[in-house]
Design a protein around this nucleic acid. Structure first.
Lengths: 209, 209
DNA sequence: TAGATTGTTAATCGATTAACAATC
DNA sequence: TAGATTGTTAATCGATTAACAATC
């Protein structure tokens, strides 16, 4: 039994864990057995100290002089991130961006399976993209209840995002992954994760100057 | 003439500016004339202090008791972010994600126009998506030189991203917006902006627990 | 053994938050 | 005028970096 007191991981560290995982997958393909923080850092242009600190939030001991066993560290990160559990999500907006996400098979390896897509365009209902069936948006609530889904993905244009969010909230969705460039108005208890391309673009342009 | 000493904006503040801009566009549609930091903060679930601090990096004075003129603040943010200049970019990878970006008309309002797309699939050469022509990847270098492009967007699958980055570097691209979940190996002087979905997903899952 | 690397505590740095004078 | 809000300087908080003992 572990202590009750668990240091919670800072968000910046949490965001870096998937990057470490990606490196570990590459190294595993090369049959590397051990990897050190310095090696990981070098590959990602981070500092070794930062990598070591980040990994300290994970339940794993490395070996002095050798580093971490690649397979163990990879598994432990997956474990920490919950990538071996499998969450199901519903996606709303079967346009190009929606289809891009549906086609992205790697999501499954990261614990997320999109089990159905929805769209307001009735012509799309019944279509199948990358093995995922599209339903009319009117079916969202019923199916969410029936399949006990609690993650929703929004890939509709900005002006429709709020309407979709309202439907999701009403249907009992607890977490929303929002790809529309709109600030969603939802009850406090709903988790919203925004992917805002404009912010990236602002940083890129600034750095280019 | 301004002083030589300009306080540079912290990256977190820079990333928030586009969010403020979005709010201002909404308010402008509503014909709101003035807006205060508190109002902006309330709409985005930020603190008023943070908004005020962020806006202080921008060259604009507000009016005590009233706030900022919506139109002025909007223009000044656009100016600060360089959204009235227009940069041209080439996109490589005309799959679903690539098409999603090509269809996203709002990019133009943010100073970025994608003027051509490239793909290694020769069947796509000559196709036109949302007004943008697709060329074979072999044409990338020549067209980049000729059109003096210095921003590249990578929307190919992970295993091909490095190859594309190499072509971009060789062609004189200075900034890369990378949507592939791979760490790119490029010379130090090249700016890379990664959009890593796994990091978002990690944060969302963590918060849901 | 010597040396490299981990794990962890302490120091530093930078962003966020607070405080408050200036102003309309 | 009183009160709300800006603009800016100071205090706080948290993440990053440094330092160093422990270990194989």
């Amino acid at each position: 039994m572990k202590g009750l007191e668990t240091t919670i991981i800072p968000e910046p560290s949490l965001r870096r864990l998937p990057l470490y995982h990606q490196i570990l997958e590459l190294e595993l393909e090369n049959n590397t057995e051990f990897i050190s923080c310095s090696k990981i850092a070098e590959m990602l242009d981070f500092t070794p100290i930062q990598v070591r600190k980040d990994l300290s939030y994970i339940n794993l001991i490395g070996m002095p002089k050798k580093g971490y066993k690649v397979i163990e560290l990879k598994d432990e990160i997956e474990n920490f991130l919950g990538w071996n559990r499998n969450d199901e999500a519903f996606l709303v907006g079967a346009g190009n961006l929606g289809k891009a996400l549906l086609s992205y098979a790697k999501l499954k390896d990261k614990g997320l399976t999109i089990t159905a897509a929805f769209d307001k365009n009735k012509n799309l209902a019944g279509e199948n993209f990358f093995g995922v069936t599209v339903f009319d948006i009117s079916k969202f609530q019923e199916l969410t209840y029936r399949m006990k889904i609690h993650i929703g993905i929004i890939t509709v244009p900005a002006p429709e995002a709020q309407k979709v969010a309202d439907i999701m909230v009403k249907s009992g969705i607890r977490g929303i992954w929002n790809f529309a460039p709109s600030k969603l108005n939802v009850p406090e208890k709903i988790i919203v994760q925004d992917v805002n391309l404009s912010s990236y673009l602002a940083v890129l342009s600034q750095k280019l100057k």
